[in-house]
Nucleic acid binder design. Structure first.
Lengths: 251, 251
DNA sequence: CGACTTGTTGATGTACATCAAGGTACGTGG
DNA sequence: CCACGTACCTTGATGTACATCAACAAGTCG
């Protein structure tokens, strides 16, 4: 388990940021783009399994995911783990340490990743000079809250089958929005243990529940490739409310 | 079930806001105070049981709680309810509808309440002109996220007894920070059903679990008066990490 | 080729939900 | 002041969804 330090190296200039062509992200004005370019202090290449953030420690950096998947989690002293949410390209990591003085959760890379690094002491300049960008930060925090609300509803009140259906559909849709899917396929870079820890159930029960969905040919999952065979049926089981999709901030 | 409209009437001027004397809240500068005064468009007196916010609807107002308790919740079509968090004096309600176009959760008053009303279309002026206040909004959103993370850990991974201990201590400490306690006493304005819905368990099981704590004289609860008899023992059961207390924003 | 990691399945126990009944406090109208 | 209703809490009986334990299968990697 390693804690990361940024490494020097070539990095994607913000002007060429791949998200700029994604319709899910809003456009930057030239001054915004210029500020962000200066805000970004480098890039971090993280391997699978890297601990990106560690609960109760401070983090001098704020990250956005440029490529790859990670997950946020908390652990109890005896090792029980709860996965709180997943971080995909475009997501923030480490805001808590910038706003308070230490992280309330940890985060780990699920794949090799590229992260944009922002020094947290410059966050104040963003708020002071770029109201539209500080609104975007609030937007992201509110979106995270909304996802947590949903997950809490799942874990607290949905049955195992409903929970499993919900999280699979949720993750598929997030990947879809980012153009990570090909038709009904997507690469899910995690194991059944991760699903179990997300949904608050045991590995064995997660396996049984998942197989109820695969045996009915609603989904398919092998060798990390997930296929959404019957979306309507899955949404029906999940009780999924088709939330609006709207342009999201860049940062 | 009623949805609220603001009623005219006398309201507390921000200059005389009771939170200004509470050391948990940071101080406002004179310009900040002046802006907030203009931002506040009135007050709302809400009775117990009032629906303050309704999921999937829009809310033209943003509220802060001046007095009283409320809770945020989500419901499934068949009536299962998950309480997400409680709102106490100083807390925001309705940010989601200001940032997105509709609420992702509902909120209901647990007591008679007084709420400060802020028209959401002026939220942009706050971001544009008052970076310190917009940072406060982000602070509040991040704090809400942190509480949700904790609750999700509880519901997903803690045992019924640990969960019960955690939520009772959590609520007691929040009340304490606001000066709502008298020694080991506090008035908890909710029923066991609310605890059950917060912790993702049935009413009967919440009752059994609670009685395990009362019969060991760790807590006492009768007629809405809660007494924390053995704080250390409760913290031990909860696995409570004594999080820092630091000055918080006003808004 | 073994050693390790991930997924699958069955046997057994328990923490929980559900159903049902009664208890206590408090209000209301006679 | 009593009969009655209502709201909330408490307790027991029964069933089930889930966890835990254990073994094995299948794939991957040195």
């Amino acid at each position: 388990m390693t804690i990361l330090e940024p490494v020097p190296g070539r990095s994607v200039p913000c002007e060429a940021c791949p998200f700029r062509s994604n319709p899910m992200f809003r456009d930057f004005s030239p001054p915004e783009l210029e500020f962000i370019s200066g805000f970004k202090s480098g890039e971090l290449n993280a391997e699978v399994g890297t601990t990106l953030l560690l609960e109760d420690t401070n983090s001098p950096y704020l990250y956005t995911v440029l490529a790859g998947w990670a997950f946020r989690y908390k652990m109890l002293p005896d090792g029980r783990r709860q996965i709180l949410n997943f971080a995909l390209p475009g997501d923030f990591l480490g805001l808590q340490a910038s706003v308070f003085d230490r992280m309330g959760h940890s985060a780990e890379a699920l794949t090799d990743m590229i992260l944009c690094i922002f020094p947290r002491e410059k966050l104040w300049e963003l708020f002071a000079g770029y109201p539209s960008l500080s609104f975007d930060v609030t937007w992201l925090a509110a979106r995270e809250e909304r996802m947590l609300d949903e997950n809490l509803l799942s874990v607290g009140r949905r049955s195992a089958l409903e929970r499993m259906a919900y999280v699979l559909l949720h993750l598929f849709r997030r990947a879809e929005d980012l153009g990570l899917t090909e038709g009904d396929r997507v690469e899910f870079p995690f194991f059944q243990q991760h699903l179990a820890d997300t949904l608050g159930m045991s590995l064995v029960h997660a396996n049984n529940t998942l197989r109820r969905l695969t045996s009915q040919k609603i989904v398919h999952w092998k060798h990390k490739v997930f296929r959404l065979l019957d979306r309507d049926r899955l949404a029906e089981i999940a009780g999924y409310d088709f939330a609006e999709r709207q342009p999201r901030p860049f940062i």
